[in-house]
Nucleic acid binder design. Structure first.
Lengths: 369, 369
DNA sequence: CTGAAAGCGCTTACAG
DNA sequence: CTGAAAGCGCTTACAG
């Protein structure tokens, strides 16, 4: 076997990375000193300026980078957070994932993204698989942002990885979570529509039976009451009886399926039957589909009916008209999630125990309302 | 300091993970045997059934999982691939990133996603930062899918990580890459429009001066010739002189900015002046904006003008009308990228040297053309 | 078939 | 201020 082949077989790297020993030798000091200089310990950081200079120069010359695995083995943190999501490209969570990563990087950590669905090759129990793999890799903490209608043993996760935070309330004792304030989101939407003179404001919710559905309804009632809007049950649309109660993920196309035609039921109920002049949609996808079907039926947006979305997904810029939408501020949520995890990991404070952090939403005005 | 606090400070984990030593002790064998049973070496896998059973039972009982860092330190692969993208949530690449990860997971590896822009907290040279960090963590290979108009020293990357593959041709000697076949993409679009009876097919390109722009043009000409369509220079729109020559990323909003109004220049040039009855748009975002502006100008899609997008982004399902679009098959590209990396990492074959793999696109018909 | 032993690269008391 | 040494958890020749 040739030398070249040997090194290749050793892991694909054609040249050995320089180690602390190499640096120490070049600098003419012991590994101990080199290590202290380069990684500034907790106080026993004693060495001469002379030694320090020599070491740093050697390190620079060799392009030395500390081996992460060795540090971790020695008891250091992995500086890695696991992030569980239904699918990496989940349109509902792109900004969250993105910002969790940004927040992690800004404190010198990394993110290990894990799809729990959407990978038929690996089989159905990918939630457990990833939880397991996270343990092997010794992540410092885990964000679980898997939708509640997707499978996965959250309890086992929390047991294996005590430093776990959920995005959305998993409804478990002792589980810390960060949640978007949906009641406030709907309040903002209703307030906006009302301030534009709308009086008959409809609310379209995917599933009223879920806690999040109830929250939305509560926000609606609160704001309607505050504004003195008349209460009319017909202005509340529940998607569940219409087969809109949950999202279906097609693992073939890797997309969430969405029966656009069913949006006509929303229009029938809210606009035609209840005479709504505004609709607060379940999310931007509902809103986009609603606007399309409305146009087909000769209903003008926003002239006849104002539409407010939820998510402020980048889709919102591309609908016609561009969509006024409530931003759940996933960027703030991402930051908070990492902050909690970091506290748990650094030991400054125990991982937040069963605390729920609510993230305040914000309305982004475009042209649909 | 209490015991609980001590363990917390040790890294956030309240209980030590069981090690091979624990398993061996419980099974009543040596670590060597336990190791051989649990990790089946390359042939010296000799042990009695009795020993194997005992070890496996012990491992199961203790929920033993091999420590990744230790294995890696001992010379095993990290089973991790670094993925460089401009931004994790980059709408142009969501499916690619997603499928790279899926492909990696299906061979027991993981993906380390790295944003090169979009994280102002870390500073401007994040490309280098991540390249460095990848070295520390000993990734088995790197996918670089950073847009060519974004900064980053590709040459240094390739030197530090010889097992690197690019998505899109970086134009460097010896760099392997996977590229979507843009000429074929435009051919498919033109063919589709022509087969629907369109004769004056316009082509809107972001920047004709770029190689990819030239490829698109070549595809256009090839198909137009094959169909006997008359050549008319006015049917080619180059965005560059109109300030559409590159995408701008707003790190505040973490979105790509897009001057929707400028799409009117496209309509002016292609539809009004050149009388196009079909437009092959630069991508789905252009297409979505075009359709919106056309509607405003009383131009019906597809009745008056057919529109074909490029990307088959999930946006395509939500435009009005839903967008017929060319899918660059990023899922196939993702698989190919990982395949190449895996070959390089496993040493079966040297990392593909300077080879370019072209991925065949596919047309997805919806209603705009 | 089995186990004692070396060593991956680092960190960190510990003794000089 | 400095260096020899132990040890993190694993893998793997090597000698029994």
């Amino acid at each position: 076997m040739s030398d070249a082949k040997k090194t290749l077989a050793r892991g694909g790297a054609p040249h050995r990375h320089p180690t602390l020993t190499d640096v120490a030798r070049l600098a003419g000091v012991s590994r101990s000193v080199a290590g202290r200089v380069l990684n500034g310990g907790t106080g026993n950081t004693r060495f001469s300026d002379q030694a320090a200079d020599a070491v740093r120069e050697a390190a620079a010359r060799l392009q030395y980078r500390p081996n992460h695995a060795a540090r971790q083995l020695r008891g250091k943190r992995s500086r890695t957070f696991g992030v569980l999501v239904a699918s990496v490209g989940d349109p509902l969570l792109t900004f969250l994932v993105q910002h969790i990563d940004a927040a992690a990087v800004s404190i010198g950590c990394r993110t290990l993204l894990a799809n729990t669905i959407g990978n038929p090759d690996v089989g159905p129990d990918q939630f457990d698989y990833h939880v397991d793999d996270f343990a092997r890799r010794g992540v410092d903490g885990v964000v679980c942002a898997v939708h509640d209608w997707c499978e996965g043993d959250r309890r086992a996760l929390l047991q294996r990885h005590p430093n776990t935070v959920f995005y959305e309330d998993p409804g478990m004792e002792g589980a810390a979570c960060v949640v978007p304030d949906r009641a406030e989101a709907v309040r903002l939407a209703v307030r906006h529509a009302a301030s534009r003179g709308r009086r008959r404001i409809g609310l379209a919710v995917m599933a009223l039976s879920r806690p999040t559905g109830q929250e939305r309804l509560a926000g609606y009632r609160a704001e309607a009451d505050a504004r003195g809007l008349p209460w009319d049950e017909r202005l509340i649309f529940d998607g569940e009886p219409h087969g809109l109660g949950y999202a279906r993920h097609n693992s073939q196309t890797r997309q969430w399926e969405f029966p656009v035609e069913l949006m006509d039921r929303v229009i029938d109920a809210l606009v035609r039957d209840a005479g709504a002049d505004a609709v607060v949609a379940h999310n931007d996808f509902w809103a986009a589909a609603l606007m399309r079907r409305m146009r087909r039926r000769g209903i003008r947006v926003p002239d006849d009916v104002a539409v407010v979305g939820y998510l402020n997904h980048y889709l919102a810029d591309w609908t016609d008209p561009p969509l006024t939408s409530i931003d759940p501020m996933q960027t703030v949520a991402g930051q908070k999630l990492v902050e909690i995890l970091e506290q748990g990991a650094s030991g400054d404070a125990p991982a937040a125990d069963g605390v729920t952090f609510r993230v305040a939403p914000r309305l982004i005005e475009r042209q649909s309302a």
